[in-house]
């Protein structure tokens, strides 16, 4: 009898652990979803801010000059949510429209498309090493990185 009670208690404990784990995971999701997309540059970059038109021009591969220096974009595709927010909050175009615009600008003006990074750590290293580079990342990823400066919070809360 005691043994049966012990087995039942162990099973209940397991279920409780699974439930707790699930709750923790569920709890973590809103925290990630609540994270903000931020426009970033190197701490050594001579850039303090960019307006919406400059950001759009930049990520279309057009020339943007800030304080007399050319800046260039790096695209961050380290996760799917960021990819979608880029189209919605950064470039303000659908993915297919953006692709067509990039193709058209290559065909019309000989422009090259912004380089794409799939690994956020590599992207942050590239940004830190290049004071001309501009990109975007989750605020939580760059908050404790002393090499990176946040230029602007993108999109809505």
């Amino acid at each position: 009898m005691e043994r049966r009670i012990a087995v039942m208690a162990r099973r209940s404990f397991r279920w409780l652990a699974v439930l707790l784990g699930a709750l923790l995971l569920y709890g973590a999701r809103p925290a990630m979803a609540a994270d903000r997309l931020v426009l970033i540059a190197s701490i050594n970059a001579p850039v303090s801010s960019l307006n919406s038109l400059e950001i759009q021009k930049l990520f279309l591969g057009l020339t943007v000059v800030i304080n007399g220096l050319d800046v260039h974009p790096l695209r961050n595709e380290s996760d799917e949510a960021m990819r979608q927010l880029f189209y919605q909050d950064v470039i303000s175009m659908s993915e297919s429209t953006y692709e067509r615009r990039l193709l058209a600008l290559t065909l019309q003006q000989g422009r090259t498309a912004p380089p794409v990074f799939r690994d956020s750590r590599a992207l942050l290293n590239a940004i830190a090493a290049d004071p001309h580079a501009i990109s975007y990342a989750w605020a939580s990823e760059v908050a404790r990185d002393g090499r990176i400066r946040i230029l602007k919070f993108l999109g809505s809360e």
């Binding site: 790096l74 380089p115 590599a122 090493a129």
Partner: peptide
């Protein structure tokens, strides 16, 4: 090669496109 991911792009390096 230039389009391969995770490379450092600076103004001193050329960027290229082929379509």
């Amino acid at each position: 090669e230039a389009d391969s991911y995770n490379h450092v792009h600076t103004d001193s390096h050329p960027s290229s496109e082929f379509v």
